[in-house]
Design a binder for these strands. Structure first.
Lengths: 333, 333
DNA sequence: CTACAGCATTAGAGCGCTCCAACCAATAGA
DNA sequence: TCTATTGGTTGGAGCGCTCTAATGCTGTAG
């Protein structure tokens, strides 16, 4: 079970350890003769380089750490796909860890990730306090996705949540809705911009805003609806803080005998695969997720290579995806 | 940006590097005086140990590698939760990588994971060929989840897919169904046992089996339904190979003007969070996912600690979760 | 006063690798 | 013939840590 080292390969190929190192790193200054001898020996021994020893010796790393705040949310999977594509293309590996939306577990994940001394870190929607991020950023390059920051040495990649909710309000207004409520994401990441976008858009159209406290879960959405129903105060359209919340809201509405979109229109946010399922077919706001990942990886690699020290703030344009949960108010199609 | 080392901490605390090492590893044979001096110096410098150097020097690792075949599937997130809980409890860290269900990318992920020389590897539903797994297993302990193997130095954790589909058939038969088709998972992991379980159960009840080729996706499910409809050959009940497939099937059925469960009953497999959404409310087979993760981590750690060399084959009992997509045939409730 | 534990502490080697400077042909130029 | 030059190859130091064996230092017994 003890794995072969460069020494073993060198011995078998009849060359020096340094030469094996050159071959492993694909150096051009190795004769074909030796190269093939080394590769053959490595193959026979089942040798593969020891990434830790390598990075220890070279004082560099080709690893990017990715902290995913919630593995249960497919949103992040697509961001990771984007990150992975860029990283691979540029010769970097990624290692992932998850915080499970819990600050303490996330902090542990961050420590663990950092203990590998990666070249940089991408944090997907982290929930740890800003100062923890700022502190980490003193040690290595950091890019934040789906969370904003004013720290000058971290880059951020976000969608323009204000614009997103603006699009949603516009859509509903154009369908004829006037009573449009927002199921708010509370303390959740990006809930602020979305709420502001909602309020601004409502003001723009001269409509009375109604913010209902809720959260980024389907049970949260359902709870908010029950609250509205209890208060006998149901608007004709609902803007959820995300798709999960929207689906929860729809369930609760249907439980109450109301039909979507005939009685109430519902708009989600994120355009998760959930929303795209024809069975759900949720009108929602799409975020370019893979693009998030690509931009984050590129920003990080720029910093890693020392090409830039100025912070970058990507703010991507969301887009409206109209499906089957929105219609004119009053059931008239 | 250059991080402090043990040397720096030792210097600042006025002790030797070895003593700092002892403190960092929580050794009892350090006087309180020195210990606090070291901890203070470490704190001031923002020192944290270098995991790679540590594992290089100690020739041991406290890292478990986890390969998740598909990050988009929340199924794996729950397994990871189980793994994480056990690993953390026993002082191990996990690093995750993903193969995106592509054999080549998965192989890359495996190599990358191994380059960190983890203590062991847990592979969640891997798609690489069996010999690649066997080869890796010569180098380090490996546990497979949701994929079986006959390799003697690999542990496996699976649910009993045969039993699972048996439960589903039994449920439908007890509702009065006779024409029950299986939307098959093809080459997908665990598709074999599920198919076998279906066939065996149908035979047990003296019913004519009908296996429809499909795959583990919602588009696959929809496609299979369209095929059945085109052939004018729709059974009264469908057993999907997984929840995604089932939801796709339901969408296609609804598109065709059929109602679920009134016209057709549908059963999924996996009990993903998707199935639990009240809007979907899918009757399905539940696998104890977190338990998968816990058992996998425990099995791996036993091997890591050299407590066992015999392979372990966990086969967990699935259970039926009845929701709203199954009813007696012909719409009579 | 010496001997010997017992304990906290430390020097030094070494983990698997990279990197630099040195080295060694072999060829080219003077 | 004697240098340069070039391209391939190598030894050795060192990355940040752990681990073993040895060190110094008490305190107690002989």
């Amino acid at each position: 079970m003890t794995r072969p080292t460069m020494e073993d390969v060198a011995l078998r190929a009849g060359v020096s350890r340094a030469l094996v190192s050159l071959v492993m790193r694909g150096s051009p200054k190795v004769s074909d003769l030796r190269r093939s001898a080394v590769l053959k020996a490595a193959e026979e021994l089942g040798y593969s380089p020891h990434a830790m020893a390598r990075s220890l010796a070279s004082r560099t790393s080709t690893v990017l750490g990715v902290m995913v705040s919630d593995l249960h949310n497919a949103f992040f999977a697509e961001v990771v796909d984007g990150i992975d594509a860029v990283a691979r293309e540029q010769g970097f590996d990624i290692i992932i860890n998850t915080g499970g939306r819990s600050p303490s577990r996330e902090r542990r994940a961050l420590d663990s990730l950092q203990s590998f001394r990666p070249a940089g870190l991408i944090l997907l929607s982290p929930v740890v306090p800003a100062n923890a991020i700022a502190k980490a950023a003193e040690q290595l390059p950091i890019v934040l996705v789906a969370r904003s920051s004013r720290v000058t040495n971290v880059d951020t990649v976000n969608d323009d949540g204000e614009q997103g909710l603006g699009l949603a309000v516009e859509h509903l207004v154009s369908l004829g809705h006037k009573r449009i409520a927002h199921l708010d994401g509370g303390e959740g990441s990006q809930a602020g911009p979305r709420r502001r976008g909602y309020l601004a858009a409502m003001e723009r159209y001269g409509l009375e805003p109604q913010v209902v406290p809720s959260e980024y879960t389907d049970t949260g959405g359902a709870r908010a609806i029950r609250q509205l129903l209890d208060a006998g105060d149901l608007p004709t359209a609902l803007l959820s803080c995300n798709d999960f919340n929207a689906v929860g809201a729809i369930s609760a509405l249907e439980d109450a005998g109301l039909r979507v979109p005939d009685d109430v229109s519902v708009v989600g946010y994120d355009n998760t695969s959930l929303a795209a399922l024809r069975h759900v077919s949720l009108t929602t706001i799409d975020q370019p997720r893979a693009e998030f990942g690509r931009l984050a990886a590129e920003a990080l690699l720029q910093r890693v290579r020392g090409e830039r020290t100025e912070p970058v703030r990507h703010l991507l344009h969301p887009s409206l995806v109209v499906r089957s949960t929105t219609a004119p108010p009053g059931g008239k199609q």
